[in-house]
């Protein structure tokens, strides 16, 4: 197992280098640069601009800049934000909490709701419930997150006035209830697509399991229905869900980016968009690397978990 993990980590490092190179290239290919903000200001002379360019090291050839950045990263130096000179890691960590709060809440909602819909749909296949769930999932999967977010704001914030239209807390309040009140809308919007996905995957997984011979064996043993469902069927049906979770993680990150933007949620997604706007290269690259590391760790954990939960698989 330890050897397997080491092997995977080595692969992950290589992947990260490739991701960073591509990200770095795309970022610098985009027109404009960190200095275009300053250039708009009348007080900045060409000399000032050249001086800043030299200070930031942006006058060097791109490959050199990349290697310089990579070398610092390998030493654990994530760099400093161009905007205010704060360390990239501390900028990220100050936004991480909000994003995690949103993602964890949405995932909990999506998993609970999705599993329930999926299992019920599988057990009562082709029932009215199953048909409605199927149609509902189709609709949820085809609605763009940003559009659903805007409609939510329009209906619940603008028209009904039940929920705040954005932000994480009311300025000056910040109590638990206030946080919760702000969390509802973005979490629901982010959870919608996730719920539909989990529901579909769980339904097909469950359908496959309940037609297996060992479920017939359990029935022939006279086991009660609830026990067949929880002990015999669910454990098998959940196995493929681990892989799904590993695959869903990047999608969840992407969804969070959109939801955060729509609801002006002060998380990493917002930070990412703002930083791109400012061409704040160190922060953008930092977030890119941070997300990539999270995704890789997520899939590694999923694979390891599989080996722990499924006795047939022993990685070695």
């Amino acid at each position: 197992m330890a050897r397997y993990v080491l092997n995977r980590l080595a692969q992950a490092v290589m992947l990260l280098v490739i991701v960073s190179a591509i990200g770095f290239a795309i970022l610098h290919l985009a027109p404009g640069g960190p200095l275009s903000q300053f250039a708009a200001s009348a007080q900045m002379t060409q000399e000032d601009l050249d001086r800043v360019t030299r200070q930031l090291g942006l006058d060097r050839p791109l490959p050199i800049q990349y290697l310089d950045w990579l070398g610092r990263m390998l030493k654990g130096d994530w760099g400093k934000s161009y905007r205010d000179g704060d360390a990239v890691l501390s900028v990220i960590s100050s936004h991480l909490g909000a994003t995690l709060e949103l993602m964890v809440t949405a995932t909990i909602i999506a998993v609970l709701l999705g599993f329930w819909i999926g299992i019920t749909g599988a057990l009562r296949r082709y029932s009215l419930f199953d048909s409605l769930a199927t149609v509902g999932a189709m609709i949820a999967l085809s609605i763009p997150t940003f559009w659903f977010g805007l409609v939510t704001i329009y209906v619940f914030s603008v028209t009904l006035g039940w929920l705040p239209a954005g932000n994480r807390e009311t300025v000056g309040d910040g109590s638990f209830l206030d946080l919760l009140h702000h969390l509802i809308a973005p979490a629901m919007v982010l959870a919608l697509v996730e719920t539909a996905m989990w529901g579909r995957f769980m339904r097909s997984s469950m359908l496959e399991v309940i037609n297996q011979d060992y479920i017939r064996t359990a029935r022939a043993k006279g086991m009660p229905d609830w026990r067949i469902l929880t002990v015999h069927a669910l454990r098998n049906a959940l196995l493929p869900m681990i892989t799904v979770a590993g695959l869903q993680f990047p999608a969840l990150l992407g969804g969070a980016l959109v939801a955060e933007t729509v609801f002006t949620w002060p998380g990493m997604g917002r930070l990412f968009l703002d930083s791109i706007g400012y061409r704040d290269y160190p922060v953008v690259m930092g977030i890119l690397m941070f997300s990539a590391i999270m995704v890789l760790i997520g899939s590694l954990i999923a694979d390891m978990l599989y080996a722990v939960v499924d006795p047939r698989i022993r990685v070695g």
Binding site: Q212, D213, Y214, R216, T217, A218, A220, V231, H232, R235, N236, L239, V309, D310, P311, R312
Partner: peptide, 13 residues
């Protein structure tokens, strides 16, 4: 008891 011993036992228990 059934015909298929390979699939009649629950693999995760």
């Amino acid at each position: 008891i059934f015909q298929e011993p390979m699939t009649s036992l629950n693999p995760v228990l």
